[in-house]
Nucleic acid binder design. Sequence first.
DNA 1: CAGCTCATGTGAACGATCTTTACATGAGCT
DNA 2: AGCTCATGTAAAGATCGTTCACATGAGCTG
Lengths: 246, 246
Amino acid sequence: MSWRKEQRRAERGYHHGNLKEALLQAALGLIAEKGAAGFTFADAARMAGVSAAAPYRHFRDRDELLSSIAQRGFEQFEARLTEAWDDGRPDTVTAFERVGRAYLAFAREEPAFYNAMFESGLPVDANAALQAASERAFNVIRAAAERLAALASPGTPRPPAMMMALHIWSMAHGVASLFSRGDAARRKLPMSPDELLEAEVLIYLRGLGFPTDRRPQAKSAEPPPVPPEASSGSGVPPGGPWGKPK
Amino acid sequence: MSWRKEQRRAERGYHHGNLKEALLQAALGLIAEKGAAGFTFADAARMAGVSAAAPYRHFRDRDELLSSIAQRGFEQFEARLTEAWDDGRPDTVTAFERVGRAYLAFAREEPAFYNAMFESGLPVDANAALQAASERAFNVIRAAAERLAALASPGTPRPPAMMMALHIWSMAHGVASLFSRGDAARRKLPMSPDELLEAEVLIYLRGLGFPTDRRPQAKSAEPPPVPPEASSGSGVPPGGPWGKPK
DNA sequence: CAGCTCATGTGAACGATCTTTACATGAGCT
DNA sequence: AGCTCATGTAAAGATCGTTCACATGAGCTG
């Protein structure tokens, strides 16, 4: 029973050396397994091989650990989105959809982070640093929407980029949290969450009057010439974004 | 100290008489206050004036109480959505948007139910009855989407109703959980969640080629005549769904 | 190198929760 | 009147979050 603890202690000495990091990693693993609600401070301590009181030297309380994880999550999230956006290459629409896929991929591949960030119930404004990190991540989407808005067909009012960004965010978050993660993924779907979101975004963009055929655009100040399909009929390409209906 | 408990007991006798219901109500109140994560079985018992062990006569464990609440929530949710849909009166698009608003209204007005249903972390398939209730609620959206799909402009492929329903659900859930409830509502927005969702759905529907001017349609088998704006230009009415840009 | 300091970890303890177990009560039926 | 069984209670064990007094040893200071 207790020789194990002694053993551990013998291996690493009285001081852990890197407990804060170890706790964050342990918590991450536990949240991935059992959700933010199921994760316990004591478990994290045990997993790091220290007493239940040790974590209090590094985090005021359980919530502070959680919000540290959320913050780190937003930072990685921002990085992933930025990378996916790739400054709008090769063309704005393609890059924009890549951001959508990156959103879902993050939710799927980093369930613990996503959980801490959006589903742990901690207040958005718990922590100034957290809020800032969250805003930086959102700003990636916002900036992309800004560029997309600039592509609006001439003669049509330019949609507010902020609104577009909020719309895209809500779609991505909705799909992720309803269909793409953990228990929710068990809901049976006629298509993958990725395809679902991609179609949703494409239809939305078409609703705004954007060409969605992904032709690379020159990065010019004036909008590119309107492709034929954007000004004739309802703008629906044959087959539509959802594939060929039978 | 303990005269209070005796007092309570004197008022109602040894047997409570309606404990199951009282526990559900108490839990609902507690979840509304502190979220599903913060709610404790013991608190619910205390609030109902019984010992901490009493609830186990009515629910296997805390999770079963939670899933009972979620189930009841889905039932009320279904009722609200059905009422909002009103069988597509006065016209399909108007009714469809009313469903969207009803979704948000439910999320806002019944935070406890919404929390238990979508944010409590309980598995979708925890319980057959729960899953069934959830599917019945979704079917309201699905049926509405079915009717909407039948309105597709002639010559354009008819979008799969299932996909549309999933899209609408993800939008509504995304907006609700990001902006419309509890802590999340503190995120500052340039518009209300209701307006945000309404614009989102309108743009989406336009992307599918639907007329979105809410003219009442005859309930005929064949689609109504295509309004001019749906077949000319990009289909964007002046001002767009997001109001007048400056 | 000796000694001091302070960040870091320990163990014990408190109150709260979840859950089980043996026992108490009384409503409704015979 | 008496029996039975659903319903409630008290007590107890296990786990958690959190605090407090105390132990340890890494790194600075002289």
